[in-house]
Design a protein around this nucleic acid. Sequence first.
DNA 1: GTCTATATTAAGATAGAC
DNA 2: GTCTATCTTAATATAGAC
Lengths: 212, 212
Amino acid sequence: MKTREKILLASLALFNDEGEANVTTVDIANELDISPGNLYYHFHGKEEIIEELFSAFELELSDILQAPLQKSLSPQDAWFYLYIVFEQLFKHRYLYRNLNDILQRYPDIDRRFRKLLNLKLQAAEAVAEELVAAGILDTTGTPLSRLCDNVVLNLTFWLNYNSLREKNCADEITIHRGVFHLMSLVAPYLTADFRYFYDECCTLFDVLTKDA
Amino acid sequence: MKTREKILLASLALFNDEGEANVTTVDIANELDISPGNLYYHFHGKEEIIEELFSAFELELSDILQAPLQKSLSPQDAWFYLYIVFEQLFKHRYLYRNLNDILQRYPDIDRRFRKLLNLKLQAAEAVAEELVAAGILDTTGTPLSRLCDNVVLNLTFWLNYNSLREKNCADEITIHRGVFHLMSLVAPYLTADFRYFYDECCTLFDVLTKDA
DNA sequence: GTCTATATTAAGATAGAC
DNA sequence: GTCTATCTTAATATAGAC
């Protein structure tokens, strides 16, 4: 693997583990046993590394979020889809962990992150509309947009909230918990015929998280 | 007003406006037209200022959160109570804006913040139980703790989410929106007799936010 | 491409005069 | 209590040898 690639991978891992603000260019170089000078040969600095990491994240997440807009998701896939989204967010959790800080320091990332947020909203609405059409959800009384707004807020900040509740939570469990937490937001809108589905989720969730 | 007091007030204002990480001891001194040396005479550094600001926040918020645990809140006060909590969080929004960063750098604040989070959960459960007892909420099917968990997550991260959605939102509007957003979480559990209340909230919210 | 050595910068902090 | 002047430290960044 080329040094440039190695720098990106090591940076991502360090940012996720220690928090982006606490990782210096020297830390990254040390992690790879290369000199700081070498790192500066490949990247002009931390800023350029972050921008390149974000670009990769943006590309991958855009693809994921555009899927339900282009081709309608079958209801049984919605559950699986939620895991895909969560895993992508988790892979780049350094971003969500220090969101305001990073967006303030990198105006370009700020602009692009807001675009992604809109895309999240659109994807959530597309999936929700599918579920309503399939008779799985009944949202009469509350506008769909309000529910989706809440889903996106929870998607964006769940990882932060979970690390406040459980300081050392295994990665797998964190993702299960996140998906389940989102399910519970939608649960009150399930039609009577599909209530059993949420109950099954509760049981499954207990099984999945008991291994810990 | 004593210089010490002035430093605390100016720091809080700067932290809220610029983000704690972007404010240096020199910035604070400049804001007050005093020398950095003078600031260091009153405080050992930024750390001590933040710890003192947090202690004040902790004291005030604890009082607010303990109220519904000691004396049951009448249902008509619940709405008003939510405003009190939100305004307190808003006054110290610098903390919520860079939460992970600050908690990582100040282990003592981390410990105490988690305590406050538990207190938030307890207060939410106490209020929710009141509303259930009064026949305003019906939460059969979903455990109350899951709803409260979600309320606390939203309390903690609403300010962040809102500033992602609306970059320059007036303070007043931000708080109205936050309270309304929380209402909409609870709305699906309102009993049929009290549905009208949420509809009234929607109308009121439209009026309150139209002045902007 | 990679290293060592060094320069630059900015924040944090202190000493001593007034 | 407050100021000016100065020191320390850590992070960022570059120059030049190999």
